[in-house]
Amino acid sequence: MLQRLLTSREALLLGAIAVLLGLIALRFPGFVAPANLASVFNDTSPLILLAIGQMIVILTKCIDLSVAANLALTGMVVAMINVAAPGLPVVLIVVIAITLGTALGMVNGVLVWKLDIPPIVVTLGTMTIFRGIIFLISDGKWVNSHEMSAAFKAFPRAEILGLPMLSWCAILAVIVFTVVMSRTTLGRAAYAVGGNPHAATYTGINVGRTQFWAFTLSGALAGLTGYLWVSRYAVAYVDIAGGFELDVVAACVIGGISIAGGIGSVGGAVLGALFLGVIKNALPVVNISPFWQLAISGSAIIIAVALNARANREKGRIILKSAEHAT
């Protein structure tokens, strides 16, 4: 089981993160103190949540560029609901966020499944539309901290066993989706659809429907993250998490998820997100201007995709007997 969880690609990334932490620890031992690592994890949790959803979408040969806009729209809606009805229990807010995110994901899914529109076009379009809708419903105004109820803001910070709820949400998602991807029909269908859509059809797997569910799951996670984001930072406006979709795709690519579909794992997505999270949190510590972050994550994407491509290079048919299993 452990072996299946950590294929060599993930082990490599884990090693890279360990080396990174080691290098930082050489000069700033405080960075690897458990409390600080926990705070890095907590800070990276939204990215982990979104990266898991994005991974499922990418597995099915699609891409979801609307996740950050979905997050922002859902966040704004729940923030406005909270302002209008401060008494509404947080559980209900979470349910609303997940439901709305799911619905937005379904919009993407339906357009891809039923109208067969290329996913990049669909999600480019819905991305701008979702952002525009935020402006329409909020009239361009911010929802600020003092307008939100205390309970609304407290949820992601509430600590259980020393870890905030935000971290627990990410941990829960990792566990749930590890099971979903490895042991449910939908999870395995996602791999099959991305790996060989033609063969998937022969196997009785509906390619379009599987893609629809992938977008739906991605939307659900984006919705949940929308509430967590807005309540954690205690502010909602049109541009929150602007450009975050690229970080999410970056986390997936770094995590070894093949953009061509069919290859990837929850563990990879999580490690890819953590890699970016460690870098982001380490920059101020090691006294590098935060302006470096963009270029570093860009380079990480390029290096990661080049390494993955080397590992997955198409081998052609193996005909020579001596070559079988030798590679």
Partner: peptide, 15 residues
């Protein structure tokens, strides 16, 4: 009509 990236066992039982 098989899947290169999946295990032999899964190829046999997929679906």
């Amino acid at each position: 009509v098989l899947f290169d990236e999946l295990s032999v066992a899964e190829n046999i039982f997929l679906g």
